[in-house]
Computed example of a mutant assay.
Amino acid sequence: MPTVTLPSYRIESADWHSHGRALRALRETVFIQELGGEEAREWDHADSKAHHLLAWASESVEAVGTARWLPSGQIERLAVMPEWRGRGIGSALLASAVRELRDSRRITPFVFALENTQAFFAHLGFDPEDAPFEKHGQMLAHMALRRPDALIDADLRSRRLGETTGRLFLTHSEHLALAARQLAAQAHRQIDLLSADLQPAVYDQQEFVEALRYLAIELRGRLPVRILVIDPEPSLRRGHRLIELTRVLSSDIQIRLVPKDWAEHSDQFLLCDQAGLFLTRYQDPRRTLVDFNSGAETRRLRRLFEQIWEQGEVHPGLRRLFL
Rank of each mutant, 00 (worst) to 15 (best):
residue 118 Q to E: 15
residue 91 S to D: 07
residue 131 A to R: 13
residue 123 H to E: 13
residue 165 T to P: 04
residue 100 E to T: 15
residue 266 S to Q: 11
residue 238 R to S: 15
residue 225 V to T: 02
residue 30 V to C: 10
residue 3 T to A: 09
residue 109 P to H: 04
residue 226 R to G: 02
residue 71 P to C: 02
residue 221 G to H: 04
residue 185 A to W: 12
residue 289 L to N: 03
residue 217 I to G: 02
residue 26 L to Y: 08
residue 304 L to Q: 02
residue 230 I to M: 08
residue 286 R to M: 14
residue 60 S to D: 15
residue 42 E to N: 06
residue 283 Q to A: 14
residue 82 P to I: 00
residue 6 L to I: 10
residue 312 G to E: 03
residue 272 C to M: 03
residue 212 L to T: 01
residue 82 P to Q: 05
residue 138 Q to W: 12
residue 279 L to R: 13
residue 288 T to I: 01
residue 294 S to P: 00
residue 56 W to L: 06
residue 309 W to Y: 02
residue 110 F to M: 12
residue 129 E to W: 00
residue 271 L to T: 01
residue 303 R to Y: 03
residue 201 A to Y: 12
residue 295 G to H: 13
residue 206 Q to G: 04
residue 242 L to V: 04
residue 124 L to Q: 09
residue 189 R to C: 03
residue 319 R to Y: 08
residue 315 H to Y: 09
residue 92 A to S: 09
residue 276 G to N: 05
residue 202 V to K: 00
residue 277 L to I: 04
residue 256 R to N: 03
residue 146 R to L: 12
residue 25 A to T: 08
residue 282 Y to C: 12
residue 320 R to N: 10
residue 178 L to P: 01
residue 80 V to I: 01
residue 274 Q to S: 10
residue 151 L to H: 12
residue 30 V to N: 02
residue 41 R to P: 00
residue 252 D to W: 08
residue 284 D to M: 07
residue 177 A to H: 13
residue 7 P to Q: 06
residue 57 A to E: 15
residue 255 I to H: 04
residue 174 E to P: 02
residue 121 F to K: 12
residue 26 L to V: 02
residue 29 T to P: 02
residue 192 D to R: 14
residue 72 S to G: 13
residue 295 G to C: 09
residue 28 E to I: 06
residue 51 H to I: 09
residue 49 K to A: 13
residue 289 L to F: 12
residue 301 L to A: 00
residue 59 E to S: 10
residue 206 Q to Y: 12
residue 306 E to I: 01
residue 106 R to K: 15
residue 282 Y to S: 11
residue 32 I to T: 07
residue 316 P to R: 11
residue 252 D to V: 05
residue 229 V to P: 00
residue 241 R to M: 09
residue 62 E to P: 07
residue 298 T to D: 01
residue 239 G to R: 06
residue 14 A to I: 06
residue 269 F to E: 06
residue 250 S to T: 05
residue 228 L to Y: 12
residue 93 L to T: 08
residue 5 T to C: 01
residue 199 Q to W: 03
residue 281 R to P: 07
residue 102 R to W: 14
residue 28 E to M: 10
residue 137 G to H: 10
residue 165 T to Y: 01
residue 76 E to K: 08
residue 207 E to G: 05
residue 196 A to C: 00
residue 263 A to K: 00
residue 148 P to K: 13
residue 253 I to D: 00
residue 163 E to R: 06
residue 28 E to T: 07
residue 114 L to T: 11
residue 165 T to N: 04
residue 308 I to T: 08
residue 71 P to D: 15
residue 160 R to L: 11
residue 254 Q to C: 00
residue 89 I to F: 02
residue 45 H to I: 08
residue 37 G to Y: 11
residue 101 L to F: 14
residue 173 S to C: 01
residue 180 A to P: 10
residue 227 I to L: 06
